[in-house]
Amino acid sequence: MKVIFLKDVKGKGKKGEIKNVADGYARNFLFKQGLAIEATPANLKALE
Rank of each mutant, 00 (worst) to 15 (best):
L6T: 08
A36F: 01
D23Y: 15
L47M: 13
A42K: 08
L47Y: 14
L47I: 11
F31N: 01
K10V: 14
K32Q: 12
F5E: 00
G16Q: 02
A26M: 10
K32M: 12
K45V: 13
N28H: 13
E48Q: 13
T40I: 05
K2Q: 14
G13I: 06
D8N: 10
L30T: 00
A42E: 15
A46E: 11
L6V: 04
A36L: 02
Q33K: 14
L44S: 04
I37P: 00
K32L: 12
I18M: 06
F5D: 00
R27L: 15
V21R: 00
L35E: 03
A46T: 11
G11W: 08
V21F: 08
N28E: 15
G24M: 13
V21Y: 06
G13P: 00
G11M: 06
A36N: 00
L6F: 03
Y25E: 11
L6P: 00
T40H: 04
K7W: 10
K7R: 14
A26L: 12
E17K: 03
A22Y: 12
F31G: 01
A22R: 14
N20A: 12
V9R: 02
K15W: 05
D8K: 05
F29D: 08
E38H: 07
L30H: 01
Q33W: 15
F31V: 09
A26P: 01
A22L: 12
G11K: 05
P41D: 13
A39I: 03
N20M: 15
A39Y: 08
G34Y: 06
E38L: 07
F29Q: 07
E17S: 08
F29I: 14
N43M: 06
K19R: 14
K14F: 13
L44Q: 06
K32N: 11
K32W: 07
V3E: 00
K15L: 08
E17N: 04
A36P: 00
K2I: 13
K32P: 14
F5P: 00
M1E: 05
L30Y: 05
A39N: 03
L30E: 01
A22K: 12
L30S: 00
K10W: 14
N28W: 10
E17H: 05
K7M: 12
Q33A: 09
I37L: 09
L30I: 02
P41L: 13
G34I: 03
F29R: 07
N43G: 04
K12F: 14
N43R: 05
R27H: 11
G13E: 02
G24Q: 14
N43I: 09
K7D: 09
N43Y: 06
R27T: 11
F5L: 08
N43T: 07
A39M: 06
L47T: 09
Y25F: 11
K12I: 15
N43F: 06
Q33F: 15
L44P: 02
L6R: 02
T40M: 03
I18P: 01
V9D: 02
G34R: 07
D23L: 15
L47F: 14
A26D: 10
A46V: 10
I18W: 02
N28Y: 13
Y25I: 09
L35P: 00
N28I: 09
A46D: 14
K32Y: 08
K32S: 11
E48N: 07
V21H: 02
I18K: 03
N43L: 07
L30N: 00
I18T: 07
G11N: 09
E38N: 04
R27D: 05
F31S: 02
F5I: 01
L44N: 03
K12T: 11
Q33G: 08
F5S: 00
L35K: 04
T40K: 03
V21N: 00
L44T: 06
M1N: 05
K19L: 10
I37M: 11
K19G: 07
A26H: 05
F29W: 10
D23S: 15
A46S: 10
R27N: 10
I4W: 03
K2S: 12
G24V: 12
